[in-house]
């Protein structure tokens, strides 16, 4: 069976064709680098994504601070993680890399602040 993937690892966005047999990759075509094969393997077994969103900020120069996850989470948990992030509140100042929520939903990744925001 042939399946095509668009690799999302880098802006090249390689269109990869994978030849699958019994759920295993036996041949791969179209990837400009080895990360393409890693991506397809991951997509096949356990597709994961990182997400970015915002957390309410109190007393800061901005009303929100941006956050992302320290690593990708299973694709089907994206909305669960959004629900876990939504009620969070932080107090200014906040710094890049600050953990807004550790080990979100026990998935082994943290919610990280991605912006410096000073006190108003």
């Amino acid at each position: 069976m042939l399946r095509t993937y668009t690799c999302i690892i880098c802006p090249n966005g390689c269109e990869i064709t994978a030849k699958l047999e019994n759920g295993e990759i036996c041949d791969i075509e179209g990837a400009l680098c080895p990360r393409g094969k890693e991506y397809v393997t991951q997509e096949l077994t356990d597709p994961r994504r990182n997400i970015a969103t915002s957390v309410l900020l109190e007393g800061g120069q901005l009303p929100l601070v941006s956050v992302r996850l320290s690593g990708p989470i299973p694709k089907d948990r994206i909305f669960d993680v959004m629900n876990a992030i939504r009620p969070l509140r932080l107090k200014a100042p906040v710094h890049v890399g600050q953990v807004a929520l550790p080990n979100v939903l026990g998935l082994g990744v943290d919610v990280l602040v991605t912006k410096e925001v000073a006190v108003l």
């Binding site: 993937y5 668009t6 690799c7 999302i8 690892i9 880098c10 802006p11 966005g13 269109e15 994504r49």
Partner: peptide, 8 residues
């Protein structure tokens, strides 16, 4: 847009 953005 970039193909990876269409995808993700």
């Amino acid at each position: 847009g970039l193909p990876r953005n269409i995808e993700q």
